[in-house]
Write a protein that binds this DNA or RNA. Sequence first.
DNA 1: ACAAAGATCCGT
DNA 2: CGGATCTTTGTA
Length: 174
Amino acid sequence: MSDNSGRLSRKFFSRDVLDVAPDLLGRVLVRRGRGGKETRDIITEVEAYRGERDLACHASKGRTKRTEIMYEEAGLIYTYLIYGKYWLLNIVTGEKGVPQAVLIRATKKADGPGKVSDMFDINESFYGVDITKPSKIWIERSDIILPNYKQYPRVGVQYAGDWAKKPWRFIMED
DNA sequence: ACAAAGATCCGT
DNA sequence: CGGATCTTTGTA
């Protein structure tokens, strides 16, 4: 599920988003900037967005210029601008052709998706980047494997009706 | 071409 | 609780 460097593989992300999401908790998000400077932090909170039927998922309205990346292979990055300020970091999961993505909502030192984007300097240039290949961003294994976690309803998706009640927000416990 | 809404954050 | 801020999307 990971190569010699510990970088999580395409196989890891190719599972259903409800399996991938909790499995990301405790793992390390790494960003290599210019000059080789690395920013790294443990993932503590994620949310799952699962297919066209999921009314909270952007792909619920079908394939558009923005959502088409979710129909591609697992491991690609889906990022989009929210409220004119933050490029939220998502990773495509599941089988090709079925739109799913997991949103990285928080790390130890960035308690919110917008703060994650600030801390790791995520911007529009990350759209479609393969997080399983050597590049400016990847996720590594850590000593923490499947930590204790709890599930809660997703944030900011009241418009999704019953789908807003699904406990697809996963938070690691200390 | 125009208007509305949004997977957020911060200050009051 | 309201404002900032600007892209995406739906409607005409």
